[in-house]
Design a protein around this nucleic acid. Structure first.
Lengths: 161, 161
DNA sequence: CCGTATAGTTCGGTTTCCAAACTATTCGTG
DNA sequence: CACGAATAGTTTGGAAACCGAACTATACGG
């Protein structure tokens, strides 16, 4: 008590965790805003398109790889299908399932938006040195892997792809 | 056309931008989910608490530093005030304005949640080498600075500290 | 004083998401 | 082969996180 609120009295226990939590919302809103400018409403659907651009997948797989519920994927893809950016076909080997894929129209739309978004980000990263940039790329790759690789918290894991 | 959707035919133009865009939603949802477990509903308010823990600020400043609209800050802080985690006082030097500050209750709540969140993140980062971790910290610091420093898109800018 | 600018709040509406209930298929087992 | 259990998705109802526009209340210049 009597902890006066004058200046930061609480140095964070773990700077890395703290950094991630602090970085997230800012970066996220920056991207969401840019997407909204470029893609009109529903910027989130672009993230699904990104995943589908890697190749067709079942709806359930898409949900897992995006950390979304099946319900959310179903809704978001519905509008994409309506606009002709995604096609949805029954899986011949299991007719309960559905295979989602990107269409030519979706791919070109994605390319356009992705280019604009990347440009905006790169703009912000302009005054980093090539060295900083290389380290950033490597570090983010590690980070990405750390949060998507493992449903198995068992063993040390393989080395990148 | 006839661009078959077999395997990734489109290598990204800028791997760094691509990486950031891909990383964001996954990491964001991971954190949001953890916050929801720890803090009940309204996980976003924790991010405001984090900022207030740095010291009291006016509502408008808080909005700016969080990239939020004044309307959003007003709503989110309202519930925090109701729960006793934040106090809201008229600024004596300008009675239109309002100064927000964290209370003892808010600070301890924040500490609890932050600890749990950091633990969950560190858990995922467990199998990184100390070296990878150090690079990650440095890289994220650069990234954070790149997106918060400059409201002035005029000149090349100063050399981060 | 009176108009204009500024700080916040309130209201209405959009987007993103999920849990629970529901539908359609598959598959095991007798 | 029929019948119940498991599985893949969809629909529905509702919460949370936003924001823009309209509104309230101070402040301040003339």
């Amino acid at each position: 008590m009597t902890t006066e609120t004058q200046s930061a009295p609480r140095p964070p226990a773990d700077p890395l965790g703290d950094l991630i939590v602090g970085l997230l919302p800012v970066l996220g809103r920056f991207i969401t805003q840019t997407l909204r400018e470029q893609a009109g409403p529903s910027p989130e659907r672009i993230r699904l398109l990104r995943q589908l651009d890697r190749g067709p997948v079942r709806a359930g797989e898409l949900a897992q790889s995006c950390l979304l519920s099946p319900a959310t994927v179903s809704e978001l893809t519905e509008s994409l299908v309506r606009e002709g950016h995604v096609h949805r076909d029954a899986d011949p080997s299991d007719r309960r399932a559905v295979v989602l894929g990107i269409t030519a129209s979706g791919a070109s739309e994605l390319a356009r938006i992705q280019a604009a978004l990347t440009a905006r980000i790169v703009e912000r990263l302009e005054h980093l040195t090539p060295d900083q940039r290389a380290r950033l790329t490597a570090a983010l790759t590690d980070l990405h892997a750390a949060f998507t690789d493992l449903p198995a918290p068992k063993e040390a894991s393989r080395h990148g792809r």
